[in-house]
Design a binder for these strands. Sequence first.
DNA 1: TATAAAGAGTACTATAATGGTACCCTATCC
DNA 2: GGATAGGGTACCATTATAGTACTCTTTATA
Lengths: 152, 152
Amino acid sequence: MIRIGKLTDYGILILTHMAQDEARLFTAQEVSLAVGVPLPTTTKLLKTLVHGNLLDSQRGTKGGYLLARRPDQISMVDVVTALEGPVGLTDCGTAQHPGDCRRSTSCAIKTNWQRINQAVHDALAQVTLAEMRLPAVHPIHLPASRANLQRV
Amino acid sequence: MIRIGKLTDYGILILTHMAQDEARLFTAQEVSLAVGVPLPTTTKLLKTLVHGNLLDSQRGTKGGYLLARRPDQISMVDVVTALEGPVGLTDCGTAQHPGDCRRSTSCAIKTNWQRINQAVHDALAQVTLAEMRLPAVHPIHLPASRANLQRV
DNA sequence: TATAAAGAGTACTATAATGGTACCCTATCC
DNA sequence: GGATAGGGTACCATTATAGTACTCTTTATA
């Protein structure tokens, strides 16, 4: 199965937790306890999320972390990108390794992967932390297509 | 990065190659040579694709593999599902482990993952082998949304 | 009908990616 | 200036993935 890593999963849990009280400053320990992820792992994640500009941090005695933006301004692409790097199912078309595809013949493939990657990206971009706090109402809408006729 | 495995990538290459001459019977060796993937790996993949009902096989001296359906009837979900199992970025919501989520509090998360997984699924379902032979024309369309406003 | 060619099945090894931990450094409050 | 909290980084462990090897079965044809 194509899946996001455990750490990313934790990351989402952490952010969702912090979004419950969006203006509050949380210490790493508080977060660790609340989410049930060991402290060392939690701190590692928090640091990464700061790098990704999803959290702000305050050092020193009364330090801690807090959301860098409003929960409805933080989407799942942001989180996934921060924790796993650029979203995309293949390197092909991620503009990471633009040139090293020696199969120029089969480059219809590349264009199509770009389509797919873009769609995945958009799907993730449509769900925000704010929504993660509430049951989803609207399914993400794709145009009526073959999709629904296919074997699942 | 969230990505599909190398093997899946090879698998797509293999099928795309076979789709160039969709009615023909290919031996594993032919495929291996054409695609540039070592024979043992190629055969392993071909076997898996037969299990996934994407290929039919013929045993014996004049044996080989051929597409089980027309290229426009084989989509990327089919391939990915055959080679990596059910599509979805988290177990949560894949109906694999329905009950074991002890965080019933945070189940807004589950619903939202289902939305995302569905979107990814649909994106993959919209691209067929037939299209992989040609440069893509139509980007997969998602409704206008926040997506385009977000940092990429 | 025996032989060779080709796939089926499965078990195993190696490699790489991920997950998780530990340690030392720096900032800030009181 | 000491206690508390985050910053940075390097390291080890675990697991998943990739890749290989080997034996068995089927089938065309000489």
